[in-house]
Design a protein around this nucleic acid. Structure first.
Length: 552
RNA sequence: GCCCUCGUAGCUCAGGGGAUAGAGCGACCGCCUCCUAAGCGGUAGGUCGCAGGUUCAAAUCCUGCCGGGGGCACCA
């Protein structure tokens, strides 16, 4: 009996009660159950009686009693209690609940997969840092969150492309080149240019590649510094992401949109659709028709394309490549773009928040001596992806960045992380996984094997019922994380699951205590539960891009 | 001024209408002759920012206010 079947049973009880004339009410489409906080409340609980009481014109507890009578007769249900204002607390038969362990082990890596996003072609664009410097902490957060989200979508049946948008067009590249040239000559960094050790490193690397570069006239030298510098920076960014375990399918260059004429085509299309107009020498997109607070300039009065022009072309390009859902992950400092981007989406005739979804996440703060530090390249207080990984490792870094809601700011204190790495809850989860592996290994040496027996009716301990309920909740957790675009729910779930496992491990021994103890079905069945836990922990950690070590 | 977001235990944060508001870390007290003590059990610690409203039921939804962060370009 898994949660899905239980929901079905409750709904059937409801429909039957209505058919029998015991209840006069419209049957709701969705019946929700939840795991109970306390064992006193059974395995699963539902508030359905309270929800429909009003429509049925009966007191909630009376509705509950009607349902309880029918539910209690369902095979696999051991007890149904009515509690408080009208909760139905359901306790499953140990054998029925325990069957889940076998189902999970047999499903293996597929356990938890769903079809909520089946049929969708999803493009997830994230990080997208400019090629003018390494990936800072904010970008690192999106690398972890974006990749986790992509994995969750894939697990939910979608075809997913991870995409990195490379802003290699415009003034910032010029500033980057100017900064490189200055560094190469030993001059101070230009006003509003880039500074920092990485600039001189890149400048040196460029000169190594092209020894005579400083002999060129400045305009030509700048050109070379731009091309080679961007290339080197790009290579470095790709390597960082690769080391971080994030594999992008597409690195998209903004410059291509301009050179291929895609920008012109997008503008032509919008003109056709009547969304563009001319005013004071500039070309505008009428975004206010679709909820934006002001119209936006697409072609400036000097004839140059404004930044948004690339966005128009890029969005159109994604749609033309067949993606029905384009996701963009941005930091809170970009939230002002959402309105115009959605308006642009609507101007193309698409549905905002459906064909285009922009996820805004809060910033990452750097903490030093308990105080937030404003990251400044000039002050040398920039912390980048490599710094974080070097301090705590990929697993701890990814986990720490993913376990919080993107709505909340994250504080990163490198000193703290370096000193107390075991404060990171990732170890709590990984330790649970390693423990399951250890049990399996030793049980195998003892001669306890899964294939020799499975009797779920033996899983009668409270901690076993709780662990099974937690395991049964995994598919719904993943579905919810996908639906709400909140990967952190998977991390929180894993911490909860690990807790139930550790408690069970403490209270229920899997292996025989002594070599001469007879091996029984209880040992074997608990080994199934142990293995089922391992499967779920591994699947969950996999969704977060965190490894599942066999030893810690 | 307008927009987004946050405000929950000493700290960092979960909790998308339900029962006695949770976890990790920190503090204190216990538990390894027994599968990994990176674990388990227990104690202490809360006006869920404030005030209204909706509801049988609000930390959760709505409105206003206070406080933190971020944003409001013919910059990218």
């Amino acid at each position: 009996m898994n949660p899905e079947l239980l929901v079905l049973a409750i709904r059937t009880a409801l429909i039957d009660a209505v058919a029998a004339g015991e209840l006069a009410v419209d049957v709701p489409d969705e019946v929700r159950i939840e795991r109970t906080r306390s064992r006193d409340h059974g395995d699963w609980s539902t508030n359905i009686a309270m929800q429909i009481a009003k429509g049925a014109g009966m007191p909630p507890r009376q509705v509950a009693a009607t349902l309880a009578a029918r539910l209690g007769a369902v095979s696999g249900v051991k007890a149904v209690d009515i509690a408080g204002p009208g909760f139905l607390n359901i306790t499953l038969d140990a054998a029925a609940a325990g069957e889940l362990a076998r189902a999970i082990v047999e499903a293996g890596p597929a356990y938890g997969r769903g079809d909520a996003e089946a049929g969708h072609r999803i493009n997830v664009e994230f990080v997208s840092a400019n090629p003018t410097g390494p990936i800072h902490l904010g970008g690192t957060r999106w690398a972890a969150v974006g990749d986790a989200l992509a994995r969750i979508f894939e697990f939910s049946g979608a075809e997913v492309t991870r995409e990195y948008y490379f802003n290699d067009h415009g003034a910032q590249i010029d500033r980057f080149a100017t900064s490189l040239l200055a560094a190469a000559k030993g001059d101070p960094a230009p006003e509003d240019g880039y500074a920092g050790a990485y600039i001189s490193d890149i400048a040196v690397a460029v000169m190594e590649r092209e020894s005579g570069i400083l002999d060129l006239p400045d305009p030509e030298a700048l050109e070379r510094f731009s091309t080679l510098g961007v290339d080197l920076m790009f290579t470095e960014i790709k390597a960082s992401l690769h080391d971080f375990g994030v594999k992008f399918d597409v690195y998209f260059h903004e410059n291509d949109l301009h050179e291929s004429g895609a920008v012109d085509r997008a503008i032509a299309r919008l003109t056709e659709l009547g969304a563009m107009y001319q005013k004071s020498g500039a070309t505008w997109l009428r975004t206010t028709d679709y909820g934006d607070d002001k119209d936006r300039v697409v072609i400036k009065s000097n004839g140059e394309p404004a930044y948004i022009s690339s966005d128009l072309a890029y969005y159109l390009n994604k749609r033309e490549r067949g993606f029905d859902r384009a996701f963009i992950l941005l930091g809170a400092d970009h939230h002002g773009y959402v309105g115009r981007m959605m308006a642009m989406c609507a101007a193309f005739g698409d549905t905002p928040h459906e064909n285009l979804e922009i996820l805004i996440g809060q910033m990452v703060n750097l903490i030093k001596d308990g105080e937030p530090v404003r990251m400044s390249k000039r002050a040398g207080t920039v912390v980048v992806l490599e710094d974080l990984v070097e301090a705590v490792g990929v697993d701890a870094a990814r986990y720490a960045l993913t376990r919080s809601s993107t709505d909340s700011m994250i504080d990163i204190d490198l000193d703290l992380l370096t000193k107390h790495t075991n404060e990171n809850p990732v170890f709590y989860v990984q330790y649970a996984h390693a423990r399951t592996c250890n049990v399996t290994r030793l049980a195998g040496e003892d001669g306890v094997h899964l294939a020799d027996g499975f009797d779920p009716s033996l899983l009668t301990h409270d901690s076993e019922a709780a662990l099974l309920a937690a395991l049964g909740d995994f598919p719904r957790t993943v579905a919810q994380a996908g639906k709400l675009r909140e990967p952190h729910r998977v991390a929180r779930y894993l911490e909860d699951l690990a807790g139930h496992f550790h408690k069970w491990y403490d209270e229920c021994r899997v292996r025989p205590r002594e070599a001469n103890e007879e091996i029984t079905d209880l040992h074997r069945t608990r080994l199934w539960l142990n293995e089922a836990t391992r499967v779920v922990l591994a699947n969950g950690l996999g969704l977060l891009g965190v490894s599942s070590p066999e030893r810690l």
